[in-house]
């Protein structure tokens, strides 16, 4: 059943957002709403501006125009620490220094919660242990990151982001470089985070069918504009796929989940 997202309050809302690299305009006058406590997927072809939009929403890039509201307040007025306590970010292909252990990395997630001379608290410890438990990295705690597989390393970085205990998680292509089993594992983790931990998750995804299967809100992007946004079953159709990706396809019902499934012709 499609859920009407218009009743749900916006956790993050971009209003007339423009983003540019130097003189090159990537996004112009974008209005994008991220519904609260939902899994939103940003999907689009290469160069559609999806990662740029995510990074701007994370405060890592400055919008050249418009405003981005977090719980109704412009993120430009939030300090870096305040922002980090409310929004966690998983970057694309992050590299940790050699020899850093999983535990060392996860503890970094507490950075925005600690004062200048603050001691490591029980709350810090509990947050890290929960983050490692959720991501299944508890047994890897003392292992150096550079000796882990790609999937394990990705989970360690997600654990760091979870240790931030932010209400919002922004994930930039979290499934890229992961094999199928780890991709499914990650999607299930996101589902649990949204359902049981009341998180608002936004992820840039490459795989349209993955977005259709797991996300509750899909934003299809093309050339820095929103081509369609809404529940997957409302948004994913032969016409929108042809428009956004330039691919002729047939959209059928996923025999397992009942979600739309795109089969290219």
């Amino acid at each position: 059943m499609p859920v009407d997202e218009s009743n749900r309050s916006a956790k993050i809302a971009g209003r007339g957002v423009s983003i540019a690299y130097g003189s090159r305009r990537i996004v112009e006058d974008l209005d994008l709403v991220v519904p609260e406590r939902r899994f939103t997927a940003l999907v689009g072809p290469n160069g559609s501006g999806k990662s740029t939009i995510l990074r701007t929403f994370a405060g890592l890039m400055r919008a050249t125009g418009g405003s981005i509201l977090l719980d109704g307040r412009s993120i430009a007025t939030l300090g870096a620490r305040e922002m980090a306590r409310r929004v966690g970010v998983l970057l694309q292909g992050p590299v940790a220094p050699e020899g850093l252990t999983v535990r060392d990395l996860v503890q970094q997630g507490r950075y925005p919660h600690r004062s200048l001379f603050g001691r490591w608290s029980e709350a810090d410890q509990a947050a890290c242990e929960e983050a490692m438990m959720l991501t299944g990295t508890t047994t890897l705690a003392d292992t150096p990151l550079d000796t882990l597989s790609g999937g394990q390393r990705q989970r360690a970085w997600i654990a760091m982001t979870l240790a931030q205990q932010s209400e919002v998680l922004l994930l930039d292509e979290p499934t890229t470089f992961l094999d199928l089993a780890h991709q499914i594992e990650l999607m299930n983790l996101i589902t649990v985070l949204v359902r049981d931990h009341r998180k608002t998750v936004v992820a840039v995804l490459h795989d349209l069918n993955q977005a259709a299967r797991y996300a509750e809100h899909v934003v299809l992007l093309k050339d820095g504009r929103i081509a369609a946004a809404g529940h997957p079953s409302d948004v994913i159709s032969q016409d929108t796929i042809a428009d956004v990706f330039g691919v002729r396809s047939m959209v059928i019902r996923d025999p397992v989940a009942g979600t739309p499934l795109c089969v290219p012709l």
Partner: peptide, 15 residues
């Protein structure tokens, strides 16, 4: 340690 994670990661942690 936070700085050593790279400029973007450090910033996303609020440093």
């Amino acid at each position: 340690v936070t700085l050593s994670l790279g400029a973007e990661a450090a910033r996303s942690l609020g440093q």
